[in-house]
Write a protein that binds this DNA or RNA. Structure first.
Lengths: 243, 243
DNA sequence: CGGACAATTGAAGCCGGTCAAAACTGGTGG
DNA sequence: CCACCAGTTTTGACCGGCTTCAATTGTCCG
């Protein structure tokens, strides 16, 4: 349950989706694909834009966010290596409901919608996997929304630290060398609070010795305490049935 | 844009999904379907439960919600006549991430998962429509989440009144005879606030003459002012291009 | 090495949550 | 049909978590 929330959360790996495609289908996708490099802060697509294809994150980290008219920014999700980007709008034949931008140097492959649609049309298998993936994403979304609606800022800060530690763990990383490297502003916009409030809570954790930070980088030292702060499960532990 | 938010929002009509099925497919679904009546407050499925099929709302209104360990309830969505229920979890091969309960007497048809899956397997058309529908639902979800994360309680109350007016408009209704009939607690749980706060804001609107309420029923009198309160677009109107 | 941007700290005030009590409503049985 | 009770709605009072504004310190990169 707990591990569910943290590890399942936030890595809908795209490679699963494309497994089981025929070689001709794969090459169809590959042939039309273009890979681009994005610098920090570069925008990949914009809220309200018309989708022209889907994106695959080869490397780096991308934020999906939305700006309010008042200039506030809400970050919903970070996409890292292996994740797809921008396919909801394409499938829904909608405009993008959010924007996407790199928060660090990223390498992203673009697949034009015609090719994607063509392959999708010919592959019920892909369609089914997509349906499954979308269904699962809803679960994540609902959990996230519940967090937003019912948790305090304090709890959300802790929760997001745990999520981010996971997200910033590079496949190549070993041990616990994971650092969260992200601007305070972005982090605040992810938690959904003012950057000042975020900073104060981080300081508090730092003074308590639960995290350490030098510059932007944050490391979790005492995961147990952060977990407690996140209050992920309350006291509502159910008794187990005897089988 | 504005009308987008309100009318598109919240009526993903299921009949569209099933259009274009062959008669044998339809009858396959119909044959296995069972229709049940649920009283107010009856639970249709529970958070954590294992999906055994999907539900179609023939009549009535159903809330999709989640309870936190601390006993708070967050309502995400109301399903009314013509909407499907519980298919995300089925498609995702997940447990339900939320619960569903009738908030008024409702009539709901259940379709066992075997039949649904069987028909889905045989109908790429259905799969495509589902993909499209799911893609569109993400747009709604993201808008909702942005509202939660960035709007004040005051704005969310107004916003939800507009949504609900739409939702409670029965297909049979004419004119503006639409009343929102819902417990204050449910309404508060939808807005994501305490019922006391909700009541105070409603009173304020009532005194201002923007809404009217007798007992549970709420009617919007001055839609314009409520819209302004909801602050749906801020002041960020873009200029139009000259073509 | 400097300048611009980012992070941190301080202080003040309000929005909204919580607790408690009063008023109201609808449904039930006598 | 009416009176009553339980549950719901409403009002009041108070407190505390967050936001906001402002100023200071720190840090990165050309």
């Amino acid at each position: 349950m707990l591990s569910t929330l943290l590890s399942e959360n936030f890595r809908l790996n795209a490679s699963l989706l494309f497994e089981g495609l025929t070689e001709s289908e794969r090459s169809n996708l590959r042939r039309s694909a273009v890979t681009h490099t994005y610098k920090k802060k570069d925008i990949i697509f914009r809220d309200g834009g018309i989708p022209t294809g889907i994106y695959y994150v080869n490397a780096g980290i991308v934020k999906k966010y939305k700006e309010t008219p008042k200039g506030k920014e809400q970050i919903f999700h970070l996409c890292s290596e292996g994740e797809l980007l921008g396919y909801h709008a394409l499938l829904g034949e909608d405009r993008y409901p959010e924007s996407a931008a790199a928060i660090e140097k990223s390498e992203i492959t673009f697949i034009p919608k015609e090719n994607f649609r063509h392959v999708l049309k010919g592959s019920p298998k892909l369609a089914n996997r997509l349906l499954k993936a979308l269904g699962q994403e809803f679960t994540l979304f609902i959990n996230n929304m519940t967090n937003f609606a019912t948790k305090t800022v304090r709890e959300r800060v802790a929760y997001n630290l745990l999520i981010l530690e996971e997200k910033f763990k590079r496949p190549t990383d070993e041990h616990d060398a994971r650092e969260i490297v992200m601007s305070r502003t972005d982090l605040a916009n992810m938690v959904g609070t003012a950057k000042e409030t975020l900073v104060r809570l981080l300081q508090e954790y730092k003074r308590a010795g639960w995290i350490d930070s030098t510059g932007k980088a944050i490391r979790i030292i005492n995961r147990k305490e952060i977990l407690r702060e996140a209050n992920l499960m309350g006291s509502g532990q159910k008794k187990k049935a005897p089988f």
